[in-house]
Amino acid sequence: MSGTPANGTADGTTDDTQALRTPPRQNLAPLLVPLVVGGLVAVALGVYGRAHTPTGFAVGPAGFSGPLAMKSWLTTGAFLLAGVQVFSALVMWGRIKLDVPWIGALHRWSGRAAFLLTIPVAFHCLYALGAQFDVTRVLVHSLLGCFFYGVFTAKMLALPKRGLPGWTLPLLGGLAFTALAGLWVTSSLWFFTTIGIKL
């Protein structure tokens, strides 16, 4: 007769104890399609922006002095709303303790509004200017723009999926916010500090 307890191991731990110590295996398969599609979106935008012959004009800057001013202010609005997204996500995930019953609605609608503000900016960048790689600031801006829409697509496709690792949405959301912050720095901040703050 051995000294090992029933359903146990030589060190005295039971199968249940070992199961608690062993982290569950994360299933990354459902994340594959969102990441692949997001990557394809980013690459497709970059290829189109590079291959398309810039027209110099895309959308009328109604209410603004010019297209650069329009892009700068709309990107600023999207960036501020993205900040609301980060704050509301921290509340929803319990990182900030607030009892706000409408925080979920705030998170959803601020995200929708931020995305809508980026559409005319992206359209003008791609159609009127194209992806430009000759100036460092513009190169970084072009790459960040493609990356933003790629990671945004991946996040939206991952959102309804079940069984994803807990870090999936915070990581994708954080990457989207970081990309948008970089877009703001390389466009709006440059415009406001170089040309001036004007509508």
Score class of each variant (00 low, 15 high):
G38K: 02
S65N: 11
T55Q: 11
A82K: 02
V86P: 02
S110F: 03
W93Q: 13
V121I: 13
F64D: 06
A62S: 09
F123H: 08
V121L: 01
V138L: 12
G66Y: 00
A58S: 14
G49Y: 00
L90R: 07
G60M: 07
H107Y: 05
F57G: 01
V59N: 05
G130L: 05
P120H: 04
L74P: 01
M92Y: 08
F123G: 04
V43I: 13
A89R: 04
V138F: 00
V100P: 07
G111P: 03
A113F: 09
S65E: 13
P30G: 08
Y127I: 01
L116H: 00
F64A: 11
G46N: 08
L98E: 13
I103D: 09
W93E: 14
I96T: 06
F115N: 01
P23W: 09
P101K: 15
L106W: 10
L81G: 04
Q26L: 15
G38L: 06
Y48K: 07
V121S: 00
A44F: 07
G38F: 04
L35M: 13
A51G: 08
P120T: 09
G66M: 06
R25E: 13
F123A: 12
G77M: 03
N27S: 13
W102R: 15
T22M: 12
A29C: 08
W73T: 05
G56K: 10
G66A: 09
H52Y: 11
L117D: 06
A131Q: 06
F123M: 11
A42V: 06
W73E: 08
Q85G: 14
P61Y: 11
C125P: 00
P67V: 00
R21F: 15
A131S: 14
R112N: 12
D99L: 11
M70H: 00
T75M: 10
V86N: 02
A114C: 06
G49S: 09
F79I: 00
V37H: 05
G38R: 02
L68R: 14
F87W: 14
L98A: 15
T53I: 09
T75R: 02
R108H: 14
V138E: 08
V37K: 06
L90M: 13
T118V: 02
P67I: 04
H52C: 05
R50C: 02
A122N: 07
L90K: 01
R50T: 15
D134S: 13
V59P: 03
I119D: 04
L117C: 12
V41M: 07
S72E: 06
H52P: 09
F79Q: 01
M70D: 03
W73F: 11
V86I: 15
A131H: 10
L40T: 12
L139G: 02
L80I: 10
T53E: 15
V59C: 03
A29R: 14
L116P: 04
F64E: 08
T136M: 13
V47P: 12
H52G: 07
A44P: 03
A69P: 05
P23N: 07
T118A: 08
C125I: 07
A42D: 06
V140G: 01
S88H: 06
R108Q: 14
G46A: 06
L81M: 02
P67W: 07
V47D: 11
A128E: 01
G77W: 03
C125K: 04
F133H: 06
A44M: 05
H124S: 12
L90H: 01
F115D: 05
Y48S: 13
N27K: 12
G83N: 10
V59S: 04
A113V: 13
V100G: 09
A44S: 14
R137H: 09
